[in-house]
Nucleic acid binder design. Structure first.
Lengths: 122, 122
DNA sequence: CTCACATATATCGCTTTACGATATATAAAA
DNA sequence: TTTTATATATCGTAAAGCGATATATGTGAG
């Protein structure tokens, strides 16, 4: 039960990192580094910096978030907020994730039973 | 509730198609075209031909499945069977998917509540 | 019989995602 | 002062999934 290697685990999360970031931003204004920490704390999933910042730029280009440079505590940070489009996207993506999981379960659960009852010899 | 566009939906499934194929093969010997149909019937998820066949070659190269050309009904088909390694992979991948989903839920469910209660103006 | 259609497998080029590596700069802590 | 955490960014690379395309065979309609 040691799980998959890094490569496989990475692919498992493909396409869901966006949703995680949008979810964190639903709580209110956040900047990149804090988003990274919050995702890690809440889900155990680490979004690498080389992934996060291009991802945020993409979300901004798609109009799902808005960004402004601000210095609250003497330090410049790029603050992101969800747009209405971002909120809509979060809802539909979450619903699709639920559906995807349900479909996955429908396929995988019976398969696991099969494998347990009739292991391969080779 | 019309869901995501094709592009987003595609990415949502990244890394899970392997698992679906392995799951179908847990039931017994299958060939590519029948795998495609079974996945679609059981999960509603269509694996495109341009995805499926390279995917099967990959699984074979990784030793997760074994392939043999056979002609049951006069027609040549490439039959695939799960190896023991493939069965192990199915188990670990399924477990990881469960875990990934749980993490996703931990992040997304509270976020959806937020979005519903406090919609954005912009 | 022939022509259309479903079946069946395969490859190529393209786009996108996520990552590691790397760079830069500032605040905090030792 | 020197290290460490914070903070953002870009570049090149690897891999997945897809559309397009190719090829060939079985099946059913006319």
């Amino acid at each position: 039960m040691n799980g998959l290697d890094d490569k496989s685990r990475r692919d498992l999360f493909r396409g869901s990192l966006d949703v995680m970031v949008l979810a964190v931003l639903a709580d209110g204004k956040q900047y990149g580094y804090s988003i990274q920490k919050r995702v890690r704390d809440a889900s155990g999933q680490t979004i690498k910096a080389g992934t996060l910042y291009p991802l945020l730029h993409r979300l901004e280009a798609d109009g799902l978030v808005q960004a402004t440079w601000e210095s609250d505590t003497g330090r410049d940070r790029k603050w992101y907020t969800l747009t209405a489009a971002g909120q809509r996207r979060l809802k539909t993506a979450a619903a699709d994730w639920q559906a995807a999981f349900a479909r996955m379960q429908a396929l995988v659960l019976p398969a696991l039973r099969q494998v347990t009852n009739h292991p391969a010899a080779n």
